[in-house]
């Protein structure tokens, strides 16, 4: 039975990772994928539009309301 002691838990994970076979390849894929997602895609292609362009929630709300009430929708 796994006991919630830090040393045991550490050894459990360490031995588990050491004895992996196909899992090692999978972890490599996961890390490469996460790197591409968070260090490349998120940073260069997916800025949070409202967070980046406005500094307060009030400004963000005003922007969205302006989008919703623009003159093109009032005809």
């Amino acid at each position: 039975m796994l006991l919630p002691q830090p040393g045991k838990i550490y050894r459990f994970y360490r031995n588990g990772f050491k004895s992996m076979t196909v899992g090692k390849t999978l972890w490599k894929i996961i890390f490469i994928k996460l790197f591409i997602m968070f260090a490349v895609l998120k940073v260069f292609f997916f800025p949070d539009f409202l967070q980046t362009n406005f500094s307060t929630d009030q400004q963000r709300a005003d922007h969205v309301i302006e989008q919703l009430t623009g003159s093109a929708h009032l005809n």
Partner: peptide, 26 residues
């Protein structure tokens, strides 16, 4: 194997919400 390849692909949709669908996200 399926879990490892599929994991976190859903997070990309959250990226898209912030960039492409900001009015909706708000």
């Amino acid at each position: 194997i399926n879990f490892a390849i599929g994991v976190a692909t859903g997070i990309i949709m959250e990226f898209e919400f912030g960039t492409n669908w900001s009015s909706y996200s708000w």
